[in-house]
Computed example of a mutant assay.
Amino acid sequence: MMTYNTEVTEMANKLDYIENQSRRNNLIFDGIKDDRKETWEQSETKVKEVLRNKLRLNTDNIEIERAHRNGKPGDRPRPIVVKLLRYKDKQNILRQAKMLKGTQIFINEDFSDKIRQKRKDLQPALRAARERGQVAYIRFDKLVISDRRTDN
């Protein structure tokens, strides 16, 4: 027989899983100039300009279901949440995101608050592993560390 607490925890985990599945094709674009009263179409156009001009991707085949700003206008540009039609497009964009190095634009995956917090908590261990010369990265909510391979 399940206890009440176990049942609630299990339901919370299932809910978090479903939320992350619904965000599976989403990316968050941070640092793109924000206009007050920006429409979804204007946000989509700005994202496509970044994809085309900065990442050198052909945007003709990349279908964006929706692109909208998140949060309240303030001092810094609000992030744009982009829901892509295809997961493959998301993967291609993330592969090219390294071309944004040196710009003020960042592209990240969209996760639930629970996963975002887990990833944030893993950051110090990630930095420490990289300082030790290890290959380290975060995949979903897990830290992956391996020794740097040397080619002789």
Rank of each mutant, 00 (worst) to 15 (best):
M1V: 11
M1N: 15
T3Q: 13
Y4S: 15
Y4R: 14
Y4T: 13
N5I: 08
E7G: 13
N13D: 09
N13M: 07
N13W: 05
N13Q: 13
K14Q: 14
K14I: 12
D16K: 01
D16G: 05
Y17L: 12
Y17T: 12
E19Y: 08
Q21H: 12
R24A: 12
N25M: 11
L27F: 05
I28N: 11
I28H: 04
I28G: 06
I28A: 08
I28P: 09
F29E: 06
D30E: 15
D30T: 14
G31A: 00
I32N: 01
I32L: 01
D35Y: 06
D35F: 05
D35R: 06
E38D: 07
W40V: 10
E41K: 08
Q42D: 15
Q42A: 07
S43M: 03
T45R: 14
T45M: 11
K48D: 09
E49N: 12
E49S: 10
V50H: 00
R52H: 14
R52G: 09
K54C: 05
L55I: 11
L55F: 00
L55T: 05
L57V: 07
N58Q: 15
D60H: 02
N61L: 10
I64A: 06
I64Y: 01
E65R: 09
R66P: 01
R66Q: 13
R66G: 00
R66T: 12
A67T: 00
H68P: 02
N70H: 14
G71V: 02
K72V: 10
K72Q: 15
K72W: 11
P73M: 02
G74Q: 08
G74S: 13
P79Q: 03
I80V: 06
I80C: 01
I80G: 00
V81M: 03
L85C: 07
Y87P: 08
Y87A: 10
Y87M: 09
K88R: 14
D89H: 01
K90V: 04
N92V: 04
I93G: 00
L94E: 08
R95N: 15
Q96D: 03
Q96G: 01
Q96H: 06
A97Y: 01
K98A: 12
K98C: 06
K98T: 15
M99A: 14
K101F: 04
K101N: 12
K101M: 05
K101W: 00
T103R: 10
T103K: 11
Q104L: 04
F106E: 15
I107W: 08
N108R: 10
N108I: 04
E109C: 03
D110A: 03
F111W: 07
F111N: 11
S112K: 04
D113C: 09
D113Q: 12
D113H: 10
D113K: 11
K114L: 12
K114A: 09
I115S: 05
R116I: 13
L122W: 04
L122R: 02
Q123A: 09
P124R: 02
P124I: 01
A125V: 04
A128E: 15
A128N: 09
E131M: 01
R132V: 07
G133H: 03
Q134G: 08
V135I: 12
V135Y: 08
V135A: 08
Y137T: 08
Y137W: 09
I138R: 00
R139T: 10
R139N: 15
F140C: 00
F140G: 02
D141P: 02
L143T: 02
I145C: 03
S146V: 05
D147K: 14
D151I: 10
